[in-house]
Design a protein around this nucleic acid. Structure first.
Lengths: 233, 233
DNA sequence: TCCCAAACCTTGCGAATTGTTACAAAGGAC
DNA sequence: GTCCTTTGTAACAATTCGCAAGGTTTGGGA
């Protein structure tokens, strides 16, 4: 949680190993994959903070993957590619990549660029206790949820855990497993039913339309995603 | 706030002019300076969103300036430098720069990188989770498909995967194999049947005429092709 | 200590989503 | 035409999720 998770997607074993080594020396957690399919399967269970993606993969259209990663996962996406043409770089960046590094590259620069991205905004685990989002204000110190018109509704501790988890990682998929872990849930019994209930109650406090929730979205078979523009203060 | 302000700090007049032109064509406001002193004076009155800084200035230690900019101004700082050594780049990034571009550079890439930085910093304007095509609007953030007359139909996550794949590569053949890979297709053999079903369901939501599909066309023995003029926004 | 209320979990079942099967229709080779 | 392969889709089955109702724990306060 404190150490960011970096995923590596590249079909060349030497590059995977080299990056893994350098990144772990730099203090990151890493996971590496050689195939896009493997990688996407893993995404159902973990949420990386940074994704290094090689565009020239044999089994997938890399750019489409980048597009999905940036939009759905909300992760920081850095393309590492052998294609050095300006046009490649521009389209990669426009499709949602946060950076574009051409091979051959220097490991130290990769680390520096990852740090630069992490430094800017989002990855910071929030220390504040008030968050604003889409007309709501959540006061975690008072366990109060403030309406657009100033009306306050109390929320419980269990609800605050879920809400904080969402507000810490907005617009990113959060798998059920991840939630259980984060919420101190014991190993998988029927605790997932309890989670449903927590989320259900949180939804009603946020006055979500059950048929068409706008803030807490369910991804069937994968987890939840919180859509909402969060500002901590 | 509507149009971001980009400042250019470079002692070569041609570069200043070239950047000014390109950036204004791209829709930014610009201000350019040839001396660090000038620039710092201007900072008392204006708050730039992005600062392009040439490190090799005659009258100032560029790195110190970068450091101050990043810390105090909270602006996005992009170094543009003739020094291409890895060590230069690493220290530049570590001192707070958000990006490092080496001369000679392509103007289009500068614009793309500025856009990428602005996108990741500004939390509010959800960049590009909507696509328009042939009278439809697909809202991937809300999982909604909007009619020409504004009527909205929800689509599921599985459907969104297919739709996104199509919208990412319009007017190009997409083979079945490619789809399976892209959609996290498990190793199942009868998965291609599931694929058909997904597409079938998507077709009904797009109100396609089964006898004469206009958007999702089947290429017998090869795959599918999505005809439609897609604009992401 | 007893009682109460709030918070939270568990149970159970209905609903939504998705994969699978079966069969019809379409396409192509001969 | 016949024969075989490929694709569309309706119907069914398996997961997965939402949520109401009831039970259990916790923490006061008298």
């Amino acid at each position: 949680m404190t150490t960011p998770l970096v995923t590596i997607l590249d079909d060349e074993p030497e590059i995977r190993q080299m990056l893994t080594e350098v990144l772990e020396d730099a203090g990151f957690r890493t996971q590496s994959f050689s195939r896009a399919r493997e990688f996407e399967a893993a995404l159902k269970h973990v949420t990386p903070d940074v994704c290094l993606v090689d565009l020239s993969l044999p089994d997938s259209d890399g750019l489409a993957l980048v597009h999905r990663l940036a939009l759905e996962q909300g992760a920081i996406v850095i393309i590492i590619s052998g294609r050095a043409q300006v046009q490649d770089r521009v389209t990669g960046l426009e499709l949602g990549a946060d950076d574009y590094i051409t091979k051959p590259f220097d490991p130290a620069e990769v680390v520096a660029r990852i740090r630069a991205r992490l430094r800017s905004t989002r990855s910071a685990p929030q220390a504040g206790n008030t968050a604003q989002f889409n007309g709501w204000v959540a006061h975690f110190d008072r366990y109060m949820l403030e309406d657009m018109s100033g009306v306050e509704t109390p929320f419980s501790h269990a609800e605050s855990e879920v809400l904080r988890l969402f507000l810490d990682r907005p617009k990113r998929l959060i798998s059920r497993a991840q939630m259980q872990e984060s919420l101190g849930g014991a190993a998988g019994e029927s605790f997932d039913r309890a989670m449903d209930v927590r989320i259900s109650r949180l939804r009603t406090k946020l006055r979500e339309d059950p048929k068409n929730p706008r803030l807490i979205k369910t991804i069937y078979g994968a987890g939840y995603i919180f859509l909402g523009d969060v500002v901590w203060s």
